[in-house]
Amino acid sequence: MSPIQIIFILVSAITLGSALMVVTTRNMVRAALWLVLSLFGIAIHFVLLEVGFFAVAQVIIYIGAIAILMIFAIMLTRRIAQDPGPQTNSTWPIAAILALGIFGLIVFLVQGWEKAAIQPSPFPAGYDPLRELGVALVSANQYLIPFEIASILLLAALIGAIIIAWDKK
């Protein structure tokens, strides 16, 4: 095993383990903190895939903004921090079987897919993926429309959130 693979397995274990803790922890704030660790693991995965920009964007947006928003929401809502109710319901065996089945299916499909074994070739010298992304985002024949729509979508999200959160009067 190469060092990268060892790091990959370690980080994956941390990511999945903390994701499991998110759904099993009783304390809501602690669950949010586990979620942060899980999201951080994803950021490390982005680094291992050599997309540093997505890694830092993951940390800034998901940990720096969304997790903070969640923690605020939890802390500002009284009496939901400790939920004494049961964590599963009667259909959990079916859900477990389905999840395992889908996992097995994915493993089976990836095993049989020859493209999964292809090693990515390194970037040619002088090629900056970040710069290419920047150009692609505002080029009319590439991602200009999605880029501008993303902006309008965010505007819509902001207005919607304001209306839902603020429309008391």
């Binding site: 920009f53 964007a57 800034i60 947006i61 720096g64 903004a65 969304i66 903070i68 928003l69 605020f72 929401a73 500002l76 900056d128 970040l130 710069r131 290419e132 992304l133 920047g134 150009v135 985002l137 505002v138 880029f147 993303a150 902006s151 965010l154 505007l155 999200a157 902001l158 959130a161 304001i162 959160a165 603020w166």
Partner: peptide, 30 residues
């Protein structure tokens, strides 16, 4: 609950600003 509102506005701004960084890096090619 107002702390939450500011976090909400911040979230939208944060997402937008992060998108602008690749745009700034590619400035010479634009």
């Amino acid at each position: 609950a107002q702390y939450y509102n500011f976090a909400l506005v911040f979230l939208v701004f944060d997402v937008e600003i992060v998108f602008l960084f690749p745009w700034a890096v590619a400035f010479n090619q634009l």
